[in-house]
Amino acid sequence: MPVSSTHYLFLSLLLFSIGIMGTLTRRNAVIIFMCIELMLNAVNLLLVAFSRMYADVNAQLFVFFIMVVAAAEVAVGLAIIVMMYRKVQSVDINILNRLKH
């Protein structure tokens, strides 16, 4: 069976779902952050597949901008996690529910 666009659709859907499952099941803030990166990459993969399907440059430039935003996001997010670790000596997100009270 030749590889078609549907294969890439299913592959990136699978990666995205794994990212969702990881975000919902883990309590370590760093791992949750990594699962978000995984979801961003699944979307990137699908955009590149569509770019190849329609021979369109714009999708690849969108992937480029997603990578730019992801890099900025990681820098700020990891700084926040480090700050949280300094305050409470843990990266457990259940401790963060103190923000509610």
């Binding site: 030749p2 590889v3 078609s4 666009s5 549907t6 859907l13 969702i20 499952m21 919902l24 190849r52």
Partner: peptide, 27 residues
């Protein structure tokens, strides 16, 4: 519960996209 919700999301999008036009990538 997390795994089940992720699996449900997977199934929902799978059924939504399973009928899209199937185009070969080897152009």
């Amino acid at each position: 519960a997390g795994v089940v919700s992720g699996g449900i999301l997977f199934l929902v999008i799978l059924t939504a996209v399973k009928d899209v036009k199937n185009q070969s990538m080897e152009m």
